[in-house]
Amino acid sequence: MSRAVAALVVLLAAGLAAALGLAMLDLPEPAVRLPARVAAKLGDSGVDHPVTAVLLNFRAYDTLLEVAVLLLALVGVLALARPHAARAAAPAHPLLQTLARLVAPLMVLVAGYLLWIGAHAPGGAFQAGAVLAAAGVLLRLAGLLPAWAQPGLLLRGGLALGLLVFVAVAVAVLGQGSLLQYPPAAAGGLILLIEAGLTLSIGLTLAGLYLAGTEVEP
């Protein structure tokens, strides 16, 4: 690419930033006060934290499709993963292995805490799933967990569990009128059920995105 084209691209990008900035400085007042509307309906949502209420009640449809996207991405990564000849990897340092053994159970504990606290404070299925996935990656880096060659039936079931639970709840409450509209009395329990399934599946999926791409011993 010539320097002139590069300079033009940089100039256009800078112009885009300036235009975006000017548009933001000149924004009108929002016509709909979303925070007030969320706060007004928070009592019916089954949870006390507004972000969790939006994620899993008011806009649960987004989250349902997001979990499907996550699963599809993993299917794509697994389809591309081919067995590589294992490089002569240096064995992990014993200190790292010991640390990973000590920390991994604590990370599972933290994930459970984040899942539970999500109803009242920042936290929830995605944060808990990310911690679980980090534990999986740490164990893999320490050489305590094998890479995924072909996920077995149990693992595949765990990957799909979150989406299946979510869809099952969506079908079960279909009688309420619109998609994923929970009966207010049962909303808290249903959200916790969905989040528990999601935590496991998101943790496995995010870890799988890493584990499926790493070297597989022949």
Binding site: P35, V38, V51, V54, L55, R59, D62, E66, V69
Partner: peptide, 14 residues
């Protein structure tokens, strides 16, 4: 505003 925060949380995972 919790609505964009939830959307961004979704977006980060995607």
């Amino acid at each position: 505003d919790p609505v964009p925060q939830a959307m961004v949380l979704t977006g980060i995972v995607v």
